[in-house]
Design a protein around this nucleic acid. Structure first.
Lengths: 356, 356
DNA sequence: TTGTAAGCGTTATCAG
DNA sequence: CTGATAACGCTTACAA
């Protein structure tokens, strides 16, 4: 009797989970057959399949993840690195991304980089080491080493929330610069000439940078000097938005319209405006970007750029799955640009009369 | 020459990552030594350690996750299942949880159950199959099978956002019932007698249930009949909160104070109040629960129950790590009850004169 | 301090 | 359609 066969009996494993071999023994077939039953049911006869499934249920068998990953060379796990989980900016998109992955039997691993490329680099490393088959990343700003890691390990990845016109990377998102320009043009059309911007720190954040450029573009189109545009940079948070707003309005020449790089900052601005006794939009207009839930509960509601979060998440998932499945060969998959729209609520109005 | 040694040379692996054996070969040591270098550096001499690390860097070696999991019987991955990622209720706590895990070299896997015990059961299964070493769960309401799975696989788990007085499960959180009672007592002390509640659906959500009971407790203490208390149940969302509020105030006898089961519902209520021309708190008082960021940007600010989100997350992580490391043997670790406080802003005021 | 070698539980290749 | 059996890459007694 070959000693291999004895192994199972000799070990008095107390607590551990049943293995493929246990199932095989119980069903009276080989481990190979059990494996096939679970992974390619079509390649097994009706009869044995039934027996095996029976055994699986009785034993409460669940495949061992590590063993499967090792043998199959894939984990069915994707990773996503987002700048922050603290506010809702990425929540809806990520949720949609996750749902789509789940429908395809893929688990999602999320981590947040706190808007730091250095931290993100560590997390790219960690997710790869963790066996992620593919990665979702936000924006284009990251360390060269992050890209090297992805490249050298051949990990499929897509970049969301941004599109790249000039780099050969698969991205899915929208044109931040043009979106903000469109909004700024509306502001200018309403007669405003003294604009100001509250932006997230632009370093390491291409979305923030592009949005600022969009405002500048609009100014230029109206024959105004973008160099005169006051820009305050501050990390995304409601209280930071409030502080920045106060700084702006207490400066020498108060703007008639404040364009915020994001709804969180704008919400802070609006609430501080009220505290300072400024009526929005009668005394000052405020706009946001993203159209997340708080945009509708501040008062007045925020006029903002509506971003198709869910659509972006779903498409990102499908793209990534296709890439992982090798459907694009080695060439990067084509990028996808989504359209954004402006949601009008009440925070943007005509320029106050005395400034017109 | 043993044929084992030949294996490495014979395979012409093109793209694949370097393995422990590659590193060992390059450093001129055994694979065991390399493994020790990485996992227990203290047990290796200074000199060889240096050589090995050198080789690791040159090759850009990163351990294979599956192999490691298989051999070590642990993945250094924890899972968390939260009811929702869409609003910020769990964001801060989860972020803190994650940070604490990360500092201990543990990766976090998150999934959301959409407040459905059935969905949660599937996710418990998925996370276990995915190799999670331990799990963070929210509240006590789940299917018996979920608990069975946890039990039978011996997966350490803690329950957050709730404490259990009577079940032998490790939990870390606060007393939802008593917290809400405290807040309701404040409302009553201000003269209100016509209260109403907007709650999340209580089925499958012990926090919601306990909070409602808390209001009832307070009424009883004031000699009022809890059966007269109108309760509207609706899923957490701003617009649902708004709708529920409108239903309440357009009913026959309008309450003078509306207690919401959570800040999201309360934010909806406040913004709808304004739209209906009701002044808060002059015409009607509104309270929340959680003290998340929107509580401070609605106007007036929300008087609400402040929950120590970060503290809860950090302690949950530490507890779970200790459990995973076997520091509690087989007995469940002791639970930890945190204290909550009331944050006063402006949405709760004295009862309107005509109702007093 | 270091090396040897036996697993860990799957998947996949090849025969039958 | 099914069964042997060789990987997969790492950890960990056990020896030296």
């Amino acid at each position: 009797m070959p000693e291999e066969k004895l192994r199972r009996q000799r070990t008095g494993r107390a607590n551990s989970s049943p293995t493929l071999e246990d199932v095989a023994q119980k069903a009276g077939v080989s481990t190979a057959t059990v494996s096939r039953c679970l992974n390619a049911p079509a390649r097994v006869s009706e009869a044995t399949r039934k027996q095996v499934l029976e055994a699986v249920n009785q034993l409460g068998y669940a495949p061992n993840f590590g063993a499967r990953a090792l043998a199959a060379k894939r984990t069915d796990t994707f990773g996503a690195i987002i700048p922050t989980m603290e506010n809702a900016i990425f929540a809806r998109g990520l949720q949609a991304f996750q749902e789509e992955l789940e429908q395809n039997g893929i688990t999602l691993l999320v981590s947040s980089s706190s808007y730091s490329p250095q931290l993100e680099e560590k997390q790219v490393h960690a997710l790869i080491a963790r066996g992620a088959d593919a990665l979702l990343l936000i924006g284009h700003d990251r360390t060269p080493k992050s890209y090297d890691l992805l490249e050298s390990k051949g990990i499929p990845h897509v970049i969301a929330w941004s599109i790249a016109h000039d780099v050969p990377r698969t991205s899915i998102g929208f044109d931040n610069r043009n979106a903000m320009k469109t909004l700024a043009l509306e502001v200018l059309k309403l007669g405003h000439r003294d604009l100001a911007v509250i932006s997230a720190p632009r370093e390491g954040n291409d979305r923030a940078r592009e949005r600022c450029q969009g405002v500048a573009d609009a100014l230029i189109q109206f024959g105004l000097r973008p160099t005169d545009l006051p820009i305050i940079e501050t990390p995304y948070s409601i209280s930071n938005g409030a502080e920045a707003f106060q700084t702006l309005v207490s400066s020498g020449n108060r703007p008639t319209a404040v364009l915020c790089g994001n709804d969180v900052l704008a919400a802070g601005a609006i609430s501080r405006a009220r505290e300072l006794g400024l009526r929005v939009p009668d005394d000052i207009s405020i706009t946001g970007f993203d159209d997340i839930e708080i945009a509708q509960i501040v008062s007045p509601g925020l006029t903002t750029v509506h971003v198709p979060h869910r659509k972006m998440g779903i498409h990102a998932a499908r793209l990534l799955i296709a890439m992982r499945n090798g459907e694009y060969g080695d060439a990067p998959a084509e990028s996808l640009e989504l359209q954004v729209t402006i949601t009008w609520r009440g925070s943007l109005g005509p320029v106050p009369l005395r400034n017109a």
